[in-house]
Amino acid sequence: MEWGCGVRELANAIDQLSAEDPSDIPRGLLAEQLIELHWQMARLQAQIARRTYVRDPDT
């Protein structure tokens, strides 16, 4: 996988979510999506933390 490909895929996924109208989603499915979105947000925060603490090997 080329560098940055995952970030572009993430941006595309967010764009797809933005195009949806949450009021059109049945409540049960909306609840499932909210739980899944929170799990994915936690995973994304973990990746942000991994990249935040990368240190220069020369220091």
Rank of each mutant, 00 (worst) to 15 (best):
R51M: 10
T52C: 07
C5A: 13
E20S: 07
E36S: 12
R8K: 15
R43G: 04
E32S: 07
D56E: 03
D56W: 01
R50M: 12
C5G: 00
L44S: 02
L34A: 13
E36Q: 15
A19R: 13
I48H: 04
D21M: 06
V7W: 04
T52P: 00
A11T: 07
Q16V: 09
A31G: 04
T59N: 14
D24W: 01
Q40A: 00
I25F: 02
Q47V: 06
I48F: 11
L17P: 01
A11C: 06
D15W: 04
I48M: 08
A49N: 11
R50L: 12
W3H: 11
P26C: 09
A13W: 01
L29P: 00
Q16I: 07
I14R: 08
D24R: 14
P22H: 07
E36P: 01
Q33L: 12
I35L: 13
H38G: 01
A46R: 05
D24G: 01
S18F: 13
G28V: 05
S23T: 14
E32M: 03
G28K: 08
A19T: 03
A19E: 06
D24S: 10
H38A: 02
N12D: 13
T52V: 03
Q33P: 00
W3Q: 12
R8H: 05
Q16W: 08
